[in-house]
Simulated scan of single mutants.
Amino acid sequence: MRRFLRDNGLSITLFVLFLVSLVGQALTGWRANAEELRMHELPAIGLPEYLTSGHFISAVFENWESEFLQMAAYVLLTIFLFQKGAAESKKPDDDNPEDETPEKRRSDPTAPWPVHRGGLLLKLYSHSLSIALVALFVLSFWLHLAGSTQRTNEEALQHHQQIKSMVEMLAEPEFWYESFQNWQSEFLSIGVLLVLGIYLRERGSPESKPVAAPHTATGH
């Protein structure tokens, strides 16, 4: 168990922090929603009901959507775009191991089994990371849309207004405002990390270049 925790400490810690933050969001969102309902002289709802409400679903997947978009875009853009001096960029003037043809490693017993299998399976496996991230973005976008539609309709019923469909919600500026306000911050953060990593260091972190590396050094 100790070895397992050591070898997987980073992912375990991140997922624990995720769960703690999600629980915090649920509890504080529930309280905030109860206050909003009280102001409209409506009865508060229980926590289980709140977790299936548009208020919670929309807020959760609005953020997931932007995160998965950021990661998918970064993975795909770093295939053919470079940033000289950045730790996470491929070297623009040298051969990079990421571009190696996987068929060359077919005889390697340690290679993943799709490499040995070849064919369509290998082609899919060769792009499995971007496929997974794009799929998670599309799913999160759809759930954000569904949650926003549900939240809008819940508010419409409270004010005796007409409800909207998901297709109609796509034409609403408020929905796209929710998306763009997160998208811009995600692209800004990854761009800032990329550029700051050229000149600044964090000793011991694989996301940083070695402390003594020159600013012009690209990659690890």
Rank of each mutant, 00 (worst) to 15 (best):
R38D: 09
F56K: 00
S130M: 12
I45Q: 10
Q83C: 13
D99I: 00
F137K: 04
T78H: 02
T110M: 11
L5C: 04
A34M: 07
H116K: 15
S53W: 05
V211Q: 03
L14G: 09
L37T: 00
V16S: 04
L136E: 12
P102T: 14
A59I: 01
W176T: 09
K84L: 06
E88S: 13
M1F: 08
G204R: 05
V167M: 11
E62T: 12
F61S: 05
S128V: 05
A26R: 02
P210D: 01
T149Y: 06
T216F: 09
Y74E: 12
Y199L: 04
L121Y: 06
H116D: 03
N153R: 07
T149A: 12
F15G: 02
L200A: 10
V211F: 06
R6G: 05
K84C: 04
L51V: 05
F56T: 01
S179K: 14
T13R: 06
N182L: 06
Q83I: 15
L200D: 01
T218P: 01
G46F: 07
W64I: 01
S21D: 05
S58Y: 07
E174A: 12
L27I: 09
M71F: 15
K91N: 15
I198R: 03
A59R: 13
D95Y: 11
Y177H: 11
H116A: 15
D93Q: 02
V211D: 07
E35R: 12
S165L: 04
V192T: 08
L145I: 04
L129I: 15
F187C: 03
R117W: 13
D7Q: 12
A171I: 00
L170P: 02
S179M: 13
E155Y: 08
G54R: 09
A34G: 11
Q158G: 09
P92R: 10
G219T: 00
V134E: 11
S89A: 14
F15E: 03
W176H: 15
S205C: 02
E67A: 13
Q181G: 01
S148D: 10
K164G: 02
Q181K: 14
Q150C: 01
T152H: 12
E168H: 05
L136A: 15
E41Q: 11
L133M: 14
V192M: 04
S189Q: 09
I12D: 00
T28Y: 10
S128T: 04
G204A: 02
G24D: 06
E35T: 08
V75N: 01
S128D: 09
A73L: 15
G46P: 07
S179D: 11
G46Y: 07
K90C: 03
A212Q: 08
L194V: 09
